[in-house]
C-alpha cells in the first residue's frame, strides 16, 4: 500500500506540492489528472528520489516504510518503479548489460542471490516477446536510437523484470501513437496484480481508456482537489480543468 501524507515540496522558493495526500491500496490503479504545471511530475520525481527538490515535510510510505529516508536505488529495491515520461538514452551501455546490473543490484540489496546470465536471458526474452521487443534491441545501447514507442516499451519491460510492488507511470502516453499506446497499455495491464498498486499520471483521458483506473484524482495547486471513480475522467474530458484553476492561484 502507498500512503503519501501531508507532503510539502518546493524548488527554490517556489512551493510545488502543498500538503499533498493520497492513498493507493494494493491492487488498485489510481489515476492522477490535472492541468500542466500542477506538480504531477514533481510528485513522481520526489517519490522516486530525484535530486533538486526540497521536501519540507511529509511522508511517502510504501508498505509502511518511509521512502524519503532512502536513496533512489534503495527505493527501487524496496519495490518502487517509475516509468519515465521520457526514458533516457545511455550510449555505450548495452541494454542487456543494464538489465542485468539493475536486476542484480536490487537482488543484492534485498539479500537475494544474483541471477545468472542464462536465467536472466530466459526472463528477458519471455518478457520482451510479450511486448513485441525485438532481440536485436537488447544488444543495442540502452534507448539509443529507439523510437518514442520503443523507449516506452523498454521501460515497461524493465517494470516486468523488476516486479515492483508499486509502479508510477508518468505521462506514459506522451509521444505515443495509438498502436504504441495499445501495446504499452497491454503491457501495464498484464502486470496488474492484487499485490501491486499503480499511480497513473496523465492529463488526457485517452490513456485511461486503455488502462482503466479504479479511482481518479484531480490535482491542482499541488494537492488533490477531487476524487472519484473512472467516470470522473470522462467528466473532465468534457468540462476541462477550468473549474479547478482557482485552486492553482490559491497555491
Amino acid at each position: 500500500m502507498l500512503e503519501v501524507k501531508n507532503l510539502n515540496v518546493s524548488i527554490g522558493d517556489r512551493k510545488i506540492l502543498n500538503d499533498f495526500c493520497i492513498t493507493v491500496k494494493d491492487g488498485e490503479v489510481a489515476a492522477i489528472m490535472g492541468p500542466n504545471g500542477t506538480g504531477k511530475s514533481t510528485l513522481s520525481y520526489v517519490m522516486s528520489g530525484r535530486p533538486g527538490y526540497t521536501v519540507e515535510s511529509g511522508e511517502v510510505l510504501l508498505n509502511g516504510v518511509n521512502l524519503l529516508d532512502f536513496e533512489p536505488n534503495e527505493r527501487a529495491a524496496k519495490g518502487l518503479f517509475l516509468a519515465f515520461q521520457y526514458p533516457l538514452e545511455i550510449p555505450g551501455v548495452a541494454t542487456m548489460t543494464f538489465l542485468k546490473a539493475a536486476l542484480n543490484a536490487q537482488r543484492k540489496y534485498r539479500g537475494e542471490p544474483e541471477l545468472s546470465t542464462p536465467e536472466l536471458m530466459k526472463k528477458v526474452n519471455a518478457a520482451a516477446s510479450k511486448l513485441g521487443i525485438k532481440s536485436d534491441m537488447m544488444k543495442r545501447a540502452l534507448n539509443v536510437g529507439f523510437s518514442g514507442g520503443e523507449k516506452k516499451r523498454m521501460d515497461i519491460l524493465q517494470m516486468a523484470l523488476l516486479e515492483p510492488s508499486f509502479g508510477i507511470l508518468d505521462e506514459t502516453d506522451s509521444g505515443l501513437d495509438i498502436d504504441a499506446l495499445r501495446i504499452v497499455s497491454e503491457g501495464v495491464n498484464s502486470l496488474r496484480d492484487p499485490k501491486r498498486g499503480f499511480l497513473v499520471i496523465t492529463h488526457y483521458q485517452r490513456l485511461l481508456d486503455y488502462i482503466v483506473p479504479d479511482t481518479v484524482h484531480v490535482m491542482a495547486g499541488g494537492r488533490i482537489v477531487r476524487t472519484g471513480g473512472k467516470e470522473l475522467a470522462l467528466e473532465l474530458e468534457k468540462s476541462g480543468y477550468a473549474e479547478y484553476l482557482g485552486e492553482e492561484k490559491a497555491a
Partner: peptide
C-alpha cells in the same frame, strides 16, 4: 542519466 540508472536500482 545517473538518476535514471539509480531509479532502476543501481547505487550511485
Amino acid at each position: 542519466q545517473i538518476f535514471y540508472l539509480q531509479a532502476r536500482g543501481l547505487p550511485y
